[in-house]
Computed example of a mutant assay.
Amino acid sequence: MKKKILMVLAAFVAAVTFAGCGSSGGGTINVVSREDGSGTRGAFIELTGVQEEKNGQKVDKTTDKATISNSTEVVMSTVKGDTNAIGYVSLGSLSKDVKAVKVEGVAPSVKTVTDGSYKIQRPFNIMTKGEASGVAQDFINYIMSSDGQNVIEKNGYVKVSTNGAYSGTKPSGKITVGGSSSVTPVMEKLKEAYEKVNPNATIEVQESDSTTGVSNAAKGTLDIGMASRDLQGSETSEGLKVTKIAKDGIAVIVNKDNSVDNLTLKQIKNIYTGKTTSWSDVK
Results as ranks from 00 to 15, higher is better:
residue 135 V to D: 00
residue 167 S to G: 08
residue 186 V to E: 07
residue 195 E to N: 06
residue 199 P to R: 00
residue 145 S to K: 04
residue 151 V to N: 07
residue 186 V to A: 08
residue 158 V to I: 07
residue 176 T to G: 07
residue 136 A to N: 05
residue 157 Y to I: 03
residue 134 G to F: 00
residue 134 G to D: 01
residue 168 G to L: 01
residue 146 S to C: 10
residue 130 G to W: 03
residue 195 E to D: 08
residue 203 I to C: 05
residue 191 K to Q: 13
residue 202 T to K: 03
residue 142 Y to E: 05
residue 188 E to I: 14
residue 151 V to E: 05
residue 143 I to P: 14
residue 198 N to L: 01
residue 136 A to C: 05
residue 154 K to N: 13
residue 144 M to D: 09
residue 170 K to E: 00
residue 161 S to M: 13
residue 184 T to Y: 08
residue 139 F to Y: 12
residue 156 G to H: 06
residue 148 G to E: 08
residue 166 Y to H: 03
residue 145 S to W: 01
residue 188 E to K: 14
residue 198 N to C: 03
residue 204 E to K: 14
residue 162 T to R: 05
residue 193 A to C: 08
residue 163 N to C: 06
residue 160 V to N: 08
residue 140 I to S: 08
residue 210 S to Y: 05
residue 208 S to G: 14
residue 136 A to T: 07
residue 180 S to M: 11
residue 187 M to H: 14
residue 192 E to H: 11
residue 186 V to D: 11
residue 148 G to C: 14
residue 184 T to D: 10
residue 154 K to Q: 13
residue 206 Q to L: 14
residue 195 E to L: 05
residue 131 E to C: 10
residue 195 E to Q: 10
residue 206 Q to M: 13
residue 163 N to T: 03
residue 153 E to K: 14
residue 129 K to V: 03
residue 162 T to L: 07
residue 199 P to D: 02
residue 177 V to T: 06
residue 181 S to I: 15
residue 157 Y to T: 03
residue 180 S to K: 11
residue 174 K to N: 09
residue 165 A to R: 02
residue 202 T to D: 04
residue 210 S to C: 13
residue 193 A to N: 10
residue 187 M to Q: 15
residue 165 A to N: 04
residue 158 V to L: 12
residue 153 E to Q: 14
residue 193 A to P: 10
residue 193 A to T: 07
residue 178 G to N: 07
residue 172 S to F: 02
residue 148 G to I: 08
residue 157 Y to H: 08
residue 168 G to W: 00
residue 154 K to F: 10
residue 170 K to V: 00
residue 128 T to K: 06
residue 187 M to K: 12
residue 182 S to M: 14
residue 202 T to M: 03
